[in-house]
Design a protein around this nucleic acid. Sequence first.
DNA 1: CCATTAACGCTAAAGATTTGCGTTTAGGTG
DNA 2: CACCTAAACGCAAATCTTTAGCGTTAATGG
Lengths: 183, 183
Amino acid sequence: MAREMLRQGGRSARIQEAVHRTVQELLKNMDRGEITVPMIADKAGVTPSTIYRRWGDLSELLADVAVDRMRPIADPEDTGAMTSDFEAFILQYAEEMSSRVGRALLADVLGSLEGNAPVKCCQYTYHHLETLRKRASARGETPFDLGEAVDFVVAPIVYHILFGDREPTPDYCRALVARFFKQ
Amino acid sequence: MAREMLRQGGRSARIQEAVHRTVQELLKNMDRGEITVPMIADKAGVTPSTIYRRWGDLSELLADVAVDRMRPIADPEDTGAMTSDFEAFILQYAEEMSSRVGRALLADVLGSLEGNAPVKCCQYTYHHLETLRKRASARGETPFDLGEAVDFVVAPIVYHILFGDREPTPDYCRALVARFFKQ
DNA sequence: CCATTAACGCTAAAGATTTGCGTTTAGGTG
DNA sequence: CACCTAAACGCAAATCTTTAGCGTTAATGG
């Protein structure tokens, strides 16, 4: 997001909502390279200057929307055991992030020079991992370390998606997970 | 780079050279957010349309320049043993990539939607690691696996730089390296 | 040395971004 | 609850960026 809103209610919120929704719809139907601020403004029923003043430029707006779309809606599935919980979460994470949409979200999040979209995005991941960790603790399993989970499993997956040097296939992801718990 | 040049000599090469040099100078003195194509064209003594036709847009040009700047100029230092070679290389890699300039290069490389800047950039890393691996083999040491080196060490460093969730300090990097060789 | 055509320069048109100014309205205050 | 203040907006002019047409230059191959 650009700056945090000083005014949260009414018109301001309605416009944010309309703009976000418009961006998401446009992203479904066209390449991000073809999307422009005036185009978004028109479809959202707002003037371009409103968008420029509020978000700065297109990449900040896209990053804002991307972070919003990445926000967790549900906790990771509970499969009954830590390792299977973890593996299930990672497989879904890799699939989502390596999809066309996921790659676009990552690009948008990392493309914002201002703001702190990257940190927010990565906090969502930590949050999910933390949920799994607590769940494991509650079961009496010896929990894993958050930082190590990111280093061993999440980081490699994201690296390969970003640099395109290999595909994060389910087999590859399972191997990462296995290596992590066997360390 | 946009497409590969069909004509490599004379004027075409001079212009590429001038534009690249101009971009690098501008990057030293100002934020990338303030740099524009007409500004580059002016300082390089070219018309803007030439840049647009050849590179497409600013982010492609920046990616092209960034890849160029990342191209290895020298092999990693030879310290006499594989583990110290590897650690020395990683420490330098982390320092370069986490610097102001390095973060900008990474952002530019990953910011190009077209082209294959990310793959090229990452191939440079593989090339360096391969050099270290061969050198170890020649010494009679049992060499490490390239893919695992990226997964265990390079990927976490890059992840933390990109998402800003922690600093890749020398201590942290050394711990990654130690974990890799102890695995 | 000549022919071919990729790549360039110039310029006008189209489009995106910024800016000034008046208006609306959210959030606070008496 | 009516009022005040300033944030956020709409509108429109000015500025800047990007695209496209067309003639010119010069790299490459014969």
